[in-house]
Design a protein around this nucleic acid. Sequence first.
DNA 1: ATTGAAAATGGCTAGGG
DNA 2: CCCTAGCCATTTTCAAT
Lengths: 156, 156
Amino acid sequence: MKTTSGTVSIDGIDKTILRALMEDARTPILEIARQVGISGAAIHQRLRKLEKSGLIAGSKFVINPKVLGYTTMAFVGIYLDKAMSNPEAVKQLKKIPEVIECHYTTGNWSILIKILCKDNAHLMYLLNKDIQTIKGVSRTETFISLDQQIQRQINI
Amino acid sequence: MKTTSGTVSIDGIDKTILRALMEDARTPILEIARQVGISGAAIHQRLRKLEKSGLIAGSKFVINPKVLGYTTMAFVGIYLDKAMSNPEAVKQLKKIPEVIECHYTTGNWSILIKILCKDNAHLMYLLNKDIQTIKGVSRTETFISLDQQIQRQINI
DNA sequence: ATTGAAAATGGCTAGGG
DNA sequence: CCCTAGCCATTTTCAAT
């Protein structure tokens, strides 16, 4: 059965390929081939098609930050002065490596960021010295993630 | 220069290896080897060491949800009744595939989730039919991400 | 789209410094 | 911790269907 979503249509074989590689980017093509019962060359062609379609954005090694001592994750809602442009604030936030996500959001804040730091002292330092000193930032609200209980990608 | 953070110490070569693979999990070992000027076997040994240390949590293909028609991302803060246990709520949230992150947070809410949906109608459906119907969920606050401006991993 | 097989490239291990 | 060398596995291409 083919499913058309957005602009790309993928069938069951494509889904099997994607699921395997979303789990482990280094799954051998030949292993997937055996699993779905077609040749490695066919899997390879399908992968090229999926890459060209833009569905596959890339592949990444996932690093465990805790092993490097980064044990504290937090979300920070940022209020911006009307005078402060969002792009200018984002430009400053990009300079802070601990900021791993930044969203332009509806609701109370102008910006919602996710930050990864070593401990609460580190978090406090980032808030006081790096974030609240950005021109246009009037106030912040911090939510510490005590535990991340779900982490996954879109369901294929 | 060696840097000790947490429990693992990695040097400049390790960093180069990690940076390459965090960018593209399928970067050939031999290419990295050429880049840093040591043999492929040495890179291979270092990779084994890094994997054993737990620093490398895995590798993943990254899917572009927009290509599948998933264009709306939102954060939802969830208030739980005192009677409702967090683990029970998380168990229910895991059943909703659109929920791609779930955090147990300090602050106003008990839980903060990130959800990925096709459009606002889909978002509304999830909120009304799937999330607010979970036993113990008293109220939610939704923040739509109009634009994700930063997405990266920890800086090595 | 899929195949099988060839050709190219890369991964892995052993032995040694 | 690094190297070379050899072997094995995987990726990639291609003509043919």
